[in-house]
């Protein structure tokens, strides 16, 4: 997959949640351009075009970042803060999707500028339903910011 054509950046260290999410997106035809980062550090490398993702371009941000909170190396709140603190990335929609039921996390997320905050349902069917609706809402109903200066004619190819 071309790293400059990513619709969703999925950041989650749980293999089970990643598989469930991909399955739900796939059934809606929304999983073709998903990039998976296993921890916050990898997500930041991807978004800020550093390390193994140095070849990426800021002109092609993902349309949505689905971000878990509790992760190794750099946690979700830190990733969110860095995205929203940087002019190059702050317009990218970020959805925190977490098992945390802490009101404090929710308030902090909104304070830092998260676009929406969703509790991961424990039930698998409910989880799939939420991911499906989430994908449809952000990729179909919502208009993502397009930060590149030129129209995306490449989308017409091939």
């Amino acid at each position: 997959m071309n790293e400059n054509e990513v619709d969703i950046l999925l950041v989650d260290d749980s293999q089970e949640d990643v598989e469930l999410t991909l399955h739900a997106l796939r059934t809606e035809g929304l999983a073709n351009h998903v990039f998976i980062a296993r921890d916050g550090e990898e997500a930041l490398d991807f978004l800020f075009c550093t390390g193994p993702h140095a070849q990426r371009s800021f002109d092609h941000p993902p349309k949505l970042v689905l971000l878990d909170l509790k992760m190794p190396k750099v946690d979700g709140m830190q990733v969110l803060k860095q995205i929203k603190d940087d002019a190059r990335t702050k317009t990218i929609p970020v959805v925190l999707m977490t098992s945390s039921r802490e009101e404090r996390d929710m308030a902090e997320g909104y304070e830092l500028g998260v676009n929406s905050y969703i509790q991961k349902p424990v039930d698998c069917d409910e989880f799939r339903k939420v991911v499906k609706l989430l994908g449809l809402y952000w990729l179909v109903t919502n208009r993502p910011p397009i930060t590149n200066a030129t129209p995306q004619v490449a989308k017409q190819a091939p």
Partner: peptide, 10 residues
């Protein structure tokens, strides 16, 4: 989306 699934701030 907003009232069915999202956790809105307190």
């Amino acid at each position: 989306f907003w009232f069915g699934f999202v956790n809105l701030p307190p």
